[in-house]
Design a protein around this nucleic acid. Structure first.
Lengths: 296, 296
DNA sequence: AGAACATGATTCCCGAAAGGTATCACTCGA
DNA sequence: TCGAGTGATACCTTTCGGGAATCATGTTCT
């Protein structure tokens, strides 16, 4: 088997048709160059260069081999590039889970940035509720998720990528819509409240329950999707609490009211987390994590 | 820059996922194999294998690089093949000149054998009269010609590949066609004889003149192509001498008569030569020459 | 014709690089 | 806790590639 150095030597001589000049181009002297070419010819099993004391020219076999040699060296030049780009996360695949709501404010900008900064990364999108995302992360089906707490922080790491207020959504002609001031928990006394599945949308379920705990509302519906909640509100089935970004969903016939979160803790209680396995090795993931906004 | 050995080492380890077994497969020991892989990783600039004391697995960059490495090694495997085949004359191009007449008996079988035994040789055909072939050979436009003497034997080498009788062609209703015996030179006395161009078809011109020298026929036409001669004979413009193989051209309205070549020398005076440059280096040519029939 | 020159091949030497042996560091299973 | 298994490291030996000098041969100029 020949070596790459021998190929380079041959190509140089074939292009210069002169051992001395070729050696100079290769930053070496002529004797070892002659030997390399001889070795290559023995390895290939054919005379590649016809040479005497006056001239050097390619044999027909040499012409054919020159094409192969150039192609090989070009491949060698570029062989490492892809691996390097993958290693730096600039190429590869990212399997990204997201909830329907996370798509409103976060997913779009993220995908736009990725297609600009990491154009060679293929993003495979999976819309799933948070528990399904967590399961996918643990099974290795997903690299990154956009979901809500809680999750197993021993195995999964996360970062808050969006934080927003909670607000109320009521039918457009509802009495609460006319108040014109932030609503407090007491305003919901006696209201029919649509809430979330305690398992599939646990985060919003708990936010709702926590905010309304003292006012003892009637909570009946148990839905997973925020859009479904709003559609039910629009249909007059009750009122609900949703993240502020839901305003831009553009559902007709509903009104959104700010909430008065006096002592309930800090403002903007709705957190969206980017979630990934602590032991993940994907370079694309690492690279994408550096691109994510961080909200504390 | 990495080496081909390093690529082989990496591929072996990537396939075995075990340095010891990979080393065994490569007929070496484990320590240098580890070093080679390390060097390759430094050359590429990315970690290709994730390894600890218990397991070896490919990183994402490693998976990408493995594909490149395999392709490269496959190219290396086959790179020499083409050159070797060219060198042995089993691949390449043969530029072959031939006269219209030589195609009747010789060209077909030659092309058939070549497509069987040297399927990777491209044959480029040039139909030319002999002088044009000789010119092409000297200019390097042709590798091999099928033509007639004379030519410059200092520069060109040749071999007789076909030998055949001369015969007469006469109109179908001609008196000579009815004789039913070999014709001698005297039979042509007073006949209108169609002959050949002394420059472009010198060989047949001289054969004709030599045979008919004593009988002083009227020689008027000066054509190049044997087929043209026969067509003129069919048109009743005269009689002519042609090689015996012309019988199979299938021209209607003519008759072919054997000649009585008593003292004019040996029988079968019409020679077809394969002609090539003495200094030709083409491996394909050398290989084809070994396939040519030899007639002494 | 002879000398100077040009060019690729050969020879000999040296240093870098590759492979081998022995060993270490670490993990896992009994 | 100990032994087996694995990859990494240290050190030695061998091999291989590059460099300087020289050779063999053909060209060119005087």
């Amino acid at each position: 088997m020949f070596s790459l150095d021998q190929l380079s030597a041959f190509v140089a001589v074939a292009e210069e048709l002169h051992f001395g000049r070729a050696a100079e181009r290769l930053n070496m002297t002529q004797p070892p160059l002659s030997r390399q070419v001889q070795k290559l010819e023995r390895a290939v099993g054919a005379r590649l260069l016809e040479r005497d004391n006056r001239k050097v020219e390619l044999t027909e076999a040499g012409q054919a081999f020159l094409v192969e040699a150039r192609r090989l060296l070009a491949l060698v030049e570029t062989a490492g590039d892809l691996a390097r780009r993958v290693d730096q996360g600039a190429a590869g695949t990212l399997r990204l889970g997201f909830t329907a709501t996370s798509a409103i404010r976060t997913l779009g900008p993220l995908l736009r940035r990725m297609s600009e900064e990491l154009p060679d990364v293929d993003v495979i999108l999976h819309e799933r509720v948070t528990p399904a995302q967590l399961d996918g992360l643990l099974r290795g089906e997903l690299d990154l998720g956009l979901g809500r707490p809680p999750f197993d922080t021993d195995v999964l790491d996360s970062r808050v990528v969006y934080r927003e207020p909670l607000c109320a959504v009521v039918p457009g002609n509802h009495r609460l819509a006319a108040l014109g001031r932030p609503l407090s928990a007491g305003d919901f006394a006696g209201e029919q409240v649509i809430s979330y599945s305690p398992t599939q949308a646990r985060y919003f379920h708990e936010l709702t329950v926590r905010f309304l705990a003292e006012s003892h509302p009637r909570i009946e519906q148990r839905v997973q999707q925020i859009l479904t909640v709003i559609l039910l509100v629009a249909a007059g089935r009750g009122v609900a609490l949703v993240p502020a970004s839901a305003r831009s969903l553009g559902v007709e016939g509903v009104a959104y009211c700010d909430l008065d979160l006096d002592g309930t803790g800090a403002g903007d209680p709705v957190e969206l987390h980017a979630i990934w396995r602590r032991d993940a090795t994907s370079p694309v993931l690492r690279r994408v994590l550096t691109m994510l906004p961080e909200h504390h």
